[in-house]
Design a protein around this nucleic acid. Sequence first.
DNA 1: ATTTGGTTTGACCAAATGGTCAACAAAAGT
DNA 2: ACTTTTGTTGACCATTTGGTCAAACCAAAT
Lengths: 201, 201
Amino acid sequence: MVANVNDTEKKILDAAKKIFELSGYNGARMQHIADEAGISKASLHYYFRSKENLFERIFHETMEEFMKVLSTWEDDTYKWELKLREFVVEFFNFLRTNSLLFILRELNRNPDLMNDRPKKKKIGFMSYFKNLQEKGLIQNFDLSLMYVFLHSLCSYPLINKIIFKRILMMDDARFDSFLEEYPNHVADFLILFIKQSKTKK
Amino acid sequence: MVANVNDTEKKILDAAKKIFELSGYNGARMQHIADEAGISKASLHYYFRSKENLFERIFHETMEEFMKVLSTWEDDTYKWELKLREFVVEFFNFLRTNSLLFILRELNRNPDLMNDRPKKKKIGFMSYFKNLQEKGLIQNFDLSLMYVFLHSLCSYPLINKIIFKRILMMDDARFDSFLEEYPNHVADFLILFIKQSKTKK
DNA sequence: ATTTGGTTTGACCAAATGGTCAACAAAAGT
DNA sequence: ACTTTTGTTGACCATTTGGTCAAACCAAAT
């Protein structure tokens, strides 16, 4: 029986994402991807002309999802403390199931991957807090710094899991329960950071 | 003229570190390493039996340097705020010239690389602050959390350079000057974090 | 039943790559 | 001077790997 085209394509994309994330572009083998998708290598090449081709598809789709989560800063009526906490929790959970290390590794290998992307119009985070600053609801501190803090605190614990577990002597269960509470601590911390910040530039 | 053995070995290690950091284990080519070191591929194999062999040498040496910097918490007479700030600045500058992404990427590829290592006796950071807590100089908050914060804030901006530059719309010069002041902001933040922390466990 | 057009695959290929080896070169003993 | 040990290398090898292709397969249209 011949599977539906889109079905096969989906199986390939799922398999490819898994293998690329696990092994990176250079470590991934077309044969492994084919095996994982349950098809022949020749079929794989029938759907995607080349490894490069397939890889770029996966990479850009992952970036797309990533950017989508980052742009959920539409102004609503929450207090900003709540909004920030909600974002941190959501962002963190997204990162838990999407390998950011994959993105970083491949971007480091080939920075051009970034240039291929369409220019992003606006950063949700930036305009949201700029707005608060203009309204005088929070102090006029450096938003770039806070952006970097936010991302660092959310991303790094997940890509550095192995080392943290080892150094903090936590087994998987302990570390997982640590991660469970973690985003709320991050939110606490960022809120504190904002509230105590003095105006400067 | 035949170069000194140790000299050649050094050239190889330097070349290998450069190539491995740039391309990762799977992306690195023995020929490239040989070229970079200015010797033949056969000579490379004369000094290091295999790629795996050479790689592990580089990996463990890098880990060693890394751990050395992390252990500079010998108790001295500084106020802890000063000590912390000094550590952050030093650690951050170390990270600027040593690719941590390399470590993370390869550890992700093969977690056993960590198990090969001799067990580390003590984490300088932990005992230093535990000591302060026992003396009642700081509150009794969760040190693991602060450890993760410290590392995340120091490490991530450097391994995520490419994306941050793009999103914050900074050119190399702007981003470099941002990084110049950065560790002091991190120190400010961590000090604030410690001072306002309530006792909990 | 036959044709048609898309899908699937085993077999195969050329290039790349880690690794070997015999021969040679340079130092170091003697 | 000579022998031995240590370095060095071009040529070569076996395997892996991305990619191709002709033949087979299959569902739907005729």
